[in-house]
């Protein structure tokens, strides 16, 4: 058995786009291994070339099947494409069943395509904990288009907004009435709306409701550089896929031309930094302050301290550390 390769030795093959090295480093990041941080530092400097597209929608709306066809379509232009497919971890065992690949088997043998399934492992916003780093590795590895498929979302899992440049929201026909379309949350984050399964008879109603919801938005917000399209697709009939790819590419050009890409990059940078700081603090509380945490919990339970004061004490203890 070969000895464990150091992460720094994997940087070169990652930059050369070697699937084995990219896959290995994604696992190490997922496992939270400190050993890979210097390698990630080098990788990060080589990112920024890829167009990162988030695809989100309720469970069963057809995200994986649509992505399979979208990748086939985009491969016609020789672009290298990566898919990160996120599925939930069990809140009980921590394990997961990652089944998105079942719908993407056609793509496995194409050397220009890389697919990675990731489990959420306790993250709540629809993405896996190490999604950002996985995107970095694929970006640095020369993938031009990186598609992130979120878990099947409900109404409020919108972390994808702060991870991708372009957001595609997929709605399937027959789920709820027109009020669903004006609710806050997932429906608001779309740069592109897709109604999937348009071979079904009730698809027209969903298309109509989405379009009228957007008209309300235009009336309130006025003109902007990007008009959110509502596209009809049918994976069963292989329809609307070319139009979706064209809209994704058009959105990228609009972001670049309007200067909004810079803004989105800034939002992503900010979120990643703050989120990481939060995680570091969280881990320090969990690992180094077990005793302190439990004694404070006692005092909160007995109503001696309120949770806010206890939290302040916890942070004060952190500051007094060397």
């Amino acid at each position: 058995m070969p000895a464990a390769v150091s992460s720094l030795d994997l940087v070169e093959p990652v930059l050369a786009g070697k699937p084995r090295a990219i896959a290995r480093l994604i696992s190490r990041v997922e496992a939270g291994e400190a050993e890979c941080r210097p390698a990630l530092e080098q990788i990060y400097r080589r990112t920024g070339g890829a167009h990162v597209v988030g695809v989100t929608g309720v469970a069963g709306s057809g995200k994986s099947t649509l992505l399979d066809q979208l990748v086939l379509e985009a491969r016609k232009s020789e672009r290298k494409i990566a898919v990160i497919a996120v599925d939930p971890s069990s809140p009980f065992s921590g394990g997961s069943i990652l089944g998105d690949r079942i719908r993407m088997n056609e793509l496995s043998l194409d050397p220009g395509v890389f697919i990675r399934s990731m489990a959420t492992r306790g993250a709540m916003g629809g993405l896996a904990r190490a999604t950002h780093e996985a995107v970095d590795l694929l970006d640095a590895g020369g993938f031009d288009l990186i598609l992130i498929e979120t878990v099947g979302v409900g109404q409020d899992e919108i972390d994808i907004v702060r991870a991708a440049h372009t957001i595609v929201v997929i709605s399937a026909p027959g789920l709820g009435d027109d009020i669903q379309t004006i609710k806050a949350g997932v429906m608001e984050i779309a740069d592109i709306h897709v109604v999937s399964k348009c071979d079904r008879p009730d698809a027209n109603k969903t298309l109509k409701e989405l379009k009228s919801m957007l008209t309300l938005g235009f009336a309130l917000r006025g003109e902007s550089a990007w008009q959110i399209p509502v596209l009809a697709t049918s994976s069963a009939k292989r329809e609307g896929i070319g139009e979706l790819l064209a809209a994704i590419d058009r959105h990228r050009r609009t972001l670049d031309d309007s200067g909004e890409m810079e803004g989105r990059r800034r939002v992503i940078a900010r979120t990643r930094m703050l989120k990481t700081a939060e995680n570091i603090l969280h881990d320090r509380f969990e690992k180094q302050h077990d005793g302190k945490v439990s004694s404070l919990i006692e005092r909160v339970v007995t109503r001696e301290l309120n949770p806010h004061t206890a939290a302040t004490e916890l942070i004060a203890a952190l500051k007094s550390e060397p």
Binding site: S93, I97, I102, S117
Partner: peptide
């Protein structure tokens, strides 16, 4: 899954080539 592992299932009727490529990427 219930033992806390990540399980990737690739479905029916795969070829050895597809399965090995998937195992490497995953």
């Amino acid at each position: 899954r219930d033992a806390g592992m990540d399980v990737i299932y690739t479905g029916l009727h795969r070829t050895p080539e597809e399965v090995v490529a998937a195992a490497v990427q995953e």
